[in-house]
Design a protein around this nucleic acid. Structure first.
Lengths: 351, 351
DNA sequence: CTTATTTATGCTCTGCAAGAGCATAAATAA
DNA sequence: TTATTTATGCTCTTGCAGAGCATAAATAAG
């Protein structure tokens, strides 16, 4: 399991699948590979990070990607089991909290540059961890997730990138002639831009990470779009790239992971998966803020967390906080056995 | 597309997939079929229903199942597109609102009786529709979803089935000797039973449909468990079956769909996908209650829906309501363009 | 050693939204 | 007519979230 050397694999069909269904059309099942992909998230020094790996055999500009590998039903009894196995091999990490995100199968979105990989369905997973338990190996590295999505970084206010580059280009895209709204996207382009990016008085919803990325992809503003052979081109090429691209469809999977985490900490106590065993309430708050972005009201945050019974004092205190020593707390695991299994249901306050 | 005749299909590999990755272990990708499955939900006469199909070629006790078919990357550009294509062929229905639920890949859970189907990963989808737009064909039929999950039907109070059959058998199961908690299920059996089924003062959470079904499956209390060759057996066989089973893992997919719908109507306006264009507020409430179960406070429901701007009056009224005529409303589609895109965030009140 | 600064923590005030119920309007049924 | 049923408007209460004031107890500066 320690061998993380990812080399080339030969695809073998095992046996013809038992006949099940016939159709009158020429619809046939062809071989599909299932890719298992992990967005492994942690918070280090108040910075939300994700574990990225570099494929030593990769020739395509040496992009980084998420840990991943094909699902092998012979070796893996479950999808998640297969994922854990691949992650351990590639990063040395034993995953803790893990949940499935989504399965992506759009034709052409799993390509590498100039690649014609036939058919891969990517199943994305989110894993949360605390780096104390993480012994990442050399070919993997923690990267700030804002490196891939700079427009999501609102810790210092609205990113200038939005007004300077993204909004004008999206507006131009929205105004291009287009067919009527498709069933998958019932809204018009301009409305989608407004809602996703909080323009014209609409609020910025920090959970819409995936929707924003998909919009930028459709508009041809991220590198992956050009790699996949989508339109855009000319106008865009000379302008600065938006965020660091990842291999295959991994940036889309990471966007899904960010959306999920940002939504989930509000109604399930998953934030504690990112914390060490003991922590101060302010450290907890900083971790929440690292994930969500904006600043929270300190006193109200304390009240919320304590009154919900999410934590209990350890009895110890922590000095060196720069002021009065802070009480240390630990996660009250018993809340999982109690009624509504609450999260840290916070709303972002003003800065 | 009108041919819904589902016959037998020959599996063909199209071409060897380009080499991508090799591992040092004997881990190889073998052929995996991807099944696309649709839980198509509607509400007819205040009864929540799901579209079931009967496989004419099926010899296995002739169980019903959900509309489904294999993903064919040659024919289907996207997963959802493939799903729509299969559903239309099998049921004559053109899907409207559709969302992906989950991908299931556990070995052995896609079997039929005595079957050794190699490897199928099932991707479940939820679709919401209103039967006025539904021209279901003969091999398909709307079934109350409570037929498959009678313990979820709280419209007449707590189902007697729970105390009479389910709880004693689950308690027996929870007390059997077992290994320590697995990473996938960190809680002990007794705790999981208590939380999922609202025992010992815990509240019944109507969203935990999937968790409850999985618990019953693990405990060997649903037919699918025995079909898949799980333990249980002896004690159970003579007792009444719990709910009507479905083919393959379709009941699990339906459970996932119920969980998702019950959760989602609380924060997204998806309930209107189940309504005709015009409706009274009480009809809307009845539809919500059909999905969620318990009764809601009528006046507060009105206030909630109206003040959230979810509906607008059509100007018409509807008589024959059995009392004073009711104003007709329609869904205000504009809310999709507004700030928090609200659902019908209701909490179940007392009966 | 004293004072300023910083962080931790307790507490209050206010407004809104949800839960619950009363009361009236306007049909149908007897 | 009168009783019944459904529709709809309004009020009262409670709890919680947002916001801010005030004090405690450390560290940093002089």
């Amino acid at each position: 399991m320690a061998d993380a050397n990812v080399r080339r694999r030969t695809f073998e069909t095992v046996e013809p699948i038992r006949e099940t269904i016939t159709t009158s059309r020429a619809e046939r099942a062809s071989a599909v590979e299932i890719g298992l992909n992990a967005a492994i998230v942690a918070v280090i020094d108040n910075e939300p990070v994700v574990l990225a790996v570099r494929d030593s055999a990769d020739q395509n500009g040496n992009l980084e990607g998420l840990p991943f590998g094909p699902f092998s039903p012979v070796d893996h009894r479950t999808l998640e089991g297969g994922l854990r196995s691949w992650v351990t091999r590639q990063t040395g990490l034993e995953l803790g909290y893990t949940e499935q995100l989504y399965s992506f199968g759009d034709r052409g979105r799993h390509a590498e540059a100039g690649d014609a990989t036939p058919h891969v369905v990517s199943i994305g997973y989110l894993a949360l961890t605390h780096p104390s338990s993480a012994a990442a190996i050399s070919s993997s590295a923690w990267r700030s997730w804002y490196q891939f999505f700079p427009w999501e970084d609102w810790r210092k206010g609205r990113p200038a990138l939005l007004a300077a580059h993204i909004e004008p280009r999206l507006k131009e895209w929205a105004e291009r002639p287009q067919r009527s709204a498709s069933p998958a996207h019932p809204l018009q382009r301009a409305d989608r831009v407004r809602i996703c990016f909080g323009l014209d008085g609409a609020a910025w919803d920090e959970e819409k990470v995936l929707e924003r990325f998909e919009l930028l992809y459709e508009a041809g503003l991220v590198d992956e779009a050009q790699r996949d052979g989508r339109e855009a081109g000319a106008i865009v090429t000379s302008l600065p790239r938006l965020g660091t691209p990842l291999r295959f469809d991994h940036r889309r999977i990471l966007a899904t992971a960010m959306s999920r985490v940002r939504a989930k900490i509000k109604y399930r106590p998953v934030i504690f998966e990112l914390m060490p065993p003991d922590f101060t309430l302010f450290e907890l708050q900083k971790t929440v803020e690292a994930i969500l972005g904006p600043h929270l009201h300190k006193q109200n945050f304390r009240r919320l967390v304590e009154s919900a019974g999410l934590v209990e004092p350890t009895g110890e205190v922590k000095s060196q906080t720069g002021g009065r020593p802070a009480k240390l707390f630990r996660f009250r695991r018993e809340v999982l056995l109690e009624r509504p299994a609450p999260g840290v249901r916070v709303k972002p306050g003003r800065a």
